[in-house]
Simulated assay, not measured.
Amino acid sequence: MPRENYQEKLDQLRDDVVAMGELVGERYDAAIEAAATGDDELAREVIEGDHEVNETYLGLEDDCTELLALQQPVAGDLRLVTASFKVITDLERVADLATNLAGYGGPDGGVHPAVEFRELGEDAGQMVADAVAAYEAGDAEACREIAARDDDFDERCRQASEAVVRELLEADRARNEEATEGRGATDAEADAEALEASLDEVSRALLAVRDLERVADHAVNVAARTLYMVENDDELIY
């Protein structure tokens, strides 16, 4: 392959990875909206549309494999191809998490009152978008800044999970206090139903927080691979 065509292939690979990032971002934003509002139809659209991301991923995987096998790139070109392969893997996993997140909305909308779900979701999504932008621009400093933001995000997720569990314990304590007052069988059945609904809401909330934290982790992975691509620096890879 002539050198100019080879360079075109590398440039196209980078452009296609960025385009995949934009596609995943659209799916992710829709998932956050679906969960935050309890929009079942939008949630189904997110889940059913995941095949488009998977097909994009497989096509880019083939492109990376072809460049590695046929062109045997070295130095910076090799880092671009290998980093791109890692980046699309993380983006595909963000899309998978989006399909999970889309289904966490409750029947009355939202995830759990103790979780600032939309804010957390938007911030995690912004981290992914910023990581893809850093990959596109080859911005090493932005990569380090994204990794630094992750510590704060992890702490916010921890606090959200604790708040959900705390509310569950307080509600259970209140039910136990009422039970000691000698309530009837009908009240007991109602309490059991309320407890089941509460446990379901708590379970969905904890899963949602966990998945948002994973989305942010994938953003850091993209930043880490980009930093390695740009500066041959593996400090963020773990």
Rank of each mutant, 00 (worst) to 15 (best):
N5P: 00
N5H: 11
Y6F: 15
Q7K: 15
L10M: 12
L10W: 02
D11I: 11
R14D: 01
R14L: 04
R14K: 14
V18I: 10
A19N: 07
M20G: 05
G21L: 06
V24A: 05
V24R: 05
G25P: 07
G25C: 07
E26T: 15
A30C: 06
T37L: 11
T37N: 08
T37H: 07
G38H: 05
D39G: 00
D40K: 14
D40P: 01
E41K: 13
V46I: 08
I47M: 11
E52N: 14
V53P: 01
V53K: 03
V53E: 03
E55W: 09
Y57Q: 10
Y57H: 15
Y57C: 04
G59H: 13
E61T: 15
T65S: 00
E66P: 01
L68N: 03
A69W: 05
A69L: 14
Q71H: 12
A75K: 08
L78T: 04
L80C: 02
A83D: 08
A83P: 03
K86C: 02
K86W: 10
I88H: 02
D90Y: 03
D90W: 00
R93T: 10
R93H: 12
A95N: 08
A95Q: 01
L97Y: 10
L97M: 12
A98V: 04
T99Y: 06
N100D: 12
L101M: 12
A102L: 09
G105I: 08
